[in-house]
Design a protein around this nucleic acid. Structure first.
Length: 576
DNA sequence: GATGCTAGCGCC
DNA sequence: AAAGGGCGCTAGCATC
């Protein structure tokens, strides 16, 4: 039976309201002691073996699933009412009145529970527990009445699966060898310093920098005093950004850049990071599904989503285990081609490298131009080579480039834009939205803000739809991984241990690594089918079986590759 | 002493 | 004249 179980916590017990697949109507609720819940859930999952499985409806995955996982219980499906409330409330295709009811304000204000890290403390539940059944019924009614019922329903399911993945990643943790990390730190910045002291190798760079600038008291940790010292030394700079310093020809530049790089490592992923976020060979950040407006995940704790390439060599699979690392090549351009049904761009995307595909078809002269043009279209470049390429490529791919252009125009009109499945952008609140169409021609500030919002909505439709594809990917993947020939609980089988926007890491027994690769590919194909149906678009994956994340890092490879410019992103990020 | 902001840099 | 999106994190610094 694929029944729906709606869980509401009441004191030390849980009220379970059961909705059958056909009757839709209420049956008498069951009351389960909280301590018996894992058994109750496990039995229902077992009963439904083979089918899609029961669906567990709860207020918030972070308040339910971690303890189930601790008890060794995995679920196949859930509906996270907190996340779905947020999506439905923002959708212009949902009647907001249907979502209003008891505790509306509490549903709006609910935050996820942080499970990892130094701030861990017990959360206080509401005195009056939120009634999940009432909220579920409201959401179902709102969904049923929506003109975008099917895509929104898919989005809610994918978002909820993402919440399950996030909890499972937190449960399993990313394998990270403290000893390796410490050795790397010691080599690069010196042994663990005393509290408050500068690491040894930074200390050694200090006199070099001070000497070269003739500033004996300079503290290069302070951008302000560094800027002062640079200008006092006769250098024409307005900030201390590494990219700008690199343009200068001065003996202080090399040591300063080296210092900044090591300081960054020490601050972001040094000894304190290790102490705080890594325990018993596992790094456990808090992933927050739906944590950003576009639907990409956010993360708290240890900078999980900016895990530097430099330290990925510390991420090593357990003995007898492997990592399967997979990332999507040019996710967002491919999503854009499908969003806009641009057949010419989709045709170029049949190549494993979309940009090369454009070059091969004579659209542009070089891979770099293709990339500049695509990124320019998705981010809103108007000047420089990016801007020029956008103009040229608009003629070649009018549907795709027109699609993002229209999203930008809509944003500038203060309209809400949507992702492919219907996640709506927030309404703008800036002053420029007032008296729209009645702007003084010389109001440069408002004009700038309006264009800035247009760049946001332009990017929103692509970034948000890309996030939806990856949600569908990992949602399918977690189920396929469970069906592999494993046994035992989650961490005894192939399981996801990291998710980075368009890249996944799976920790798998070595014997199942090849099968895991097949699962990753099948999941990608399924995500494409579910999202885009028969539209001819490919999402090729780069997949590798590795012992260390560093081996599977395409950037590490690209640094040696002749045909790729590793500084291209930096070029884009810099003025001129 | 706590809090909020900025600069700068990491990731996608 | 110049004009790219989304994030998190840290230290320094200003402020209360």
């Amino acid at each position: 039976m694929n029944e729906t179980f709606v869980l509401t916590r009441i004191g030390d017990s849980v009220r379970v309201d059961i909705r059958g697949p056909r009757n839709g109507g209420a049956t008498a609720p069951v009351t389960v002691a909280s301590s018996d819940l894992p058994t109750f859930v496990a039995e229902r999952e077992l009963d439904a073996e083979g089918g899609a499985g029961p669906r567990w409806v709860w207020d918030d995955t972070t308040r339910w699933y971690p303890s189930l996982l601790e008890s060794g219980v995995r679920v196949r499906r859930c509906l996270d009412l907190r996340l779905s409330h947020d999506i439905l409330r923002r959708s212009p295709h949902v009647d907001p009145g249907l979502l209003v009811g008891a505790s509306s304000a509490e549903w709006e204000a609910m935050d996820p529970v942080e499970l990892a890290g130094p701030a861990l403390f017990a959360w206080h539940e509401h005195d009056e527990p939120l009634d999940s059944l009432a909220e579920f019924d409201r959401q179902q009614a709102a969904l049923a009445a929506s003109t975008k019922r099917d895509p929104l329903g898919l989005l809610l399911a994918a978002e909820s699966s993402g919440a399950l993945v996030a909890a499972e990643i937190a449960h399993a943790g990313l394998p990270l060898r403290e000893a390796l990390h410490e050795r790397m730190l010691t080599t690069l910045i010196g042994p663990r310093p005393l509290p408050g002291a500068r690491p040894e190798l930074l200390e050694q760079l200090l006199p070099v920098i001070r000497g070269a600038l003739g500033a004996p008291d300079l503290n290069p940790d302070s951008p302000k005093s560094l800027l002062r010292a640079l200008r006092a030394a006769g250098l024409d700079v307005t900030d201390t950004r590494a990219w700008n310093l690199r343009q200068l020809d001065h003996p202080a530049v090399g040591p300063i850049l080296e210092y900044k790089k090591l300081l960054r490592l020490a601050n972001a992923n040094g000894w304190r990071w290790l102490d705080t976020w890594v325990r018993d060979g596992r790094y456990r950040p808090n992933f927050l599904p739906g944590g950003t407006v576009t639907g990409r995940w956010a993360a708290h704790g240890g900078g999980a989503l900016s895990f530097p390439a430099q330290i990925r060599s510390s991420v090593v699979a357990d003995d007898g285990w492997k990592f399967v690392v997979a990332d999507v090549a040019q996710l967002e351009p491919r999503v854009l081609a499908a969003l806009s049904t641009d057949l010419a761009m989709a045709e170029a995307a049949s190549e494993s490298d979309l940009y090369e595909g454009m070059v091969k078809r004579g659209a542009v002269a070089t891979r770099k131009e293709a990339k500049l043009g695509m990124l320019g279209a998705m981010y809103g470049s108007t000047s420089g080579e990016g801007g020029r390429m956008v103009t040229r490529m608009t003629r070649l791919y009018p549907r795709a480039f027109g699609f993002v252009e229209e999203a930008a125009r809509a944003g500038e009109r203060a309209e809400v834009v949507e992702t492919f499945l219907g996640r709506a952008s927030p309404a703008p609140t800036g002053r420029w939205t007032l008296a729209l169409g009645d702007l003084p021609a010389d109001d440069a500030g408002r004009d700038r803000d309006r264009r800035k919002w247009g760049r946001f909505t332009r990017n929103y439709v692509v970034q948000g739809s890309g996030a939806e594809w990856t949600l569908c990917w990992i949602a399918t993947l977690r189920n396929l991984l469970w069906q592999l020939d494993g046994a035992g609980e989650l961490t005894d089988r192939p399981h996801l241990v990291f998710f980075l926007h368009d890249e996944v890491l799976i920790h798998t027994p070595a014997a199942l690594a090849e099968e895991t690769i097949l699962a990753v590919r099948r999941a990608a194909a399924e995500a494409t089918r579910v999202m885009f149906g028969t539209f001819p678009i490919d999402f090729p994956l780069d997949v590798a079986i590795v012992d260390s994340w560093a081996e599977g890092d395409s950037r590490a490879f690209l640094l040696d590759a002749e045909d790729e410019d590793p500084d291209l992103e930096a070029d884009l990020a810099s003025p001129r």
